[in-house]
Amino acid sequence: MKPAAFEYHAPTTVDEAVTLLAEHAPNDGRILAGGQSLVPTMAFRLARPTHLIDINNVADLDKLVIEDGALCIGATVRHAQFHTPACDGVLGHLLTDVVSNIAHYPIRQRGTFCGSVAHSDPASEWCMVSATLDATMVAQSASGERLIPAAEFFETVMTTTLNEDELLREVRIPLLSDDTLYGFQEFNRRAGDFAISMTLVTYRLEGGKITDPHIGVGGAEDRPRRIAEAEAALAGQVPGDDAFRAAADAAAAAIDPMEDHATNAQYRRDLTATLVRRALENAAS
């Protein structure tokens, strides 16, 4: 259980970090952020990076500010920084409700928001939040900056459209209006484990009817995403059991669930329907 040897780099500027990444990425050089996913993988020798570029000393990556109507989360912002609301309004509360479901307290002291998104475990809470709320990923390489919408970012299990020489410099999540209602639900067999399925829903009411519904599902499929069929079932409806069940059933029917030794596809489908319904009920209550 000991990581293999690697060269250690500790840049202090973003320029230095992306220059090192450009140089070493072709030989499996990687970013080291919180280390809470990478180091276990290295301990198992499932990963043997030759160079690690530690971004923990890079000034400017710890930004957590509102800019142009979005919460901008820099690459060294830790999970624990969401234990209390990171911004005023609905979004800050939503992130605080979600964060307690991520791993455990000590892991949240080191693990980063952007590291989770770059790592892209299908059951990552931050990945699902980013997908549901249409976040924008800011990718930085030695040759410049690129903005990637969440819908084009998550490809499949632990695979994103980030290039190997790109640093995920920040994630921008659009702020939510004060009348946004939200609900979050996840299920796992033990506190702190990765979820078997989870969902985040948001919507607003106009004249008593649901408008602008977002229904995201994570953990059930190979990547988190908004489920258009479920959102369509909800839009324009009066909130209540009928609408919620219809949307939950639509979500369950639309997904292509993963299977593993303990969980078959039908179980994940049924679970997802229940979680979506409960999240919609939470949002309404």
Binding site: Q36, V39, I107, Q109
Partner: peptide
């Protein structure tokens, strides 16, 4: 002062 897993940090850090 923050509790962390010392197996998931490198000494050099």
């Amino acid at each position: 002062d923050a509790p962390v897993r010392s197996c998931l940090m490198f000494g050099v850090q």
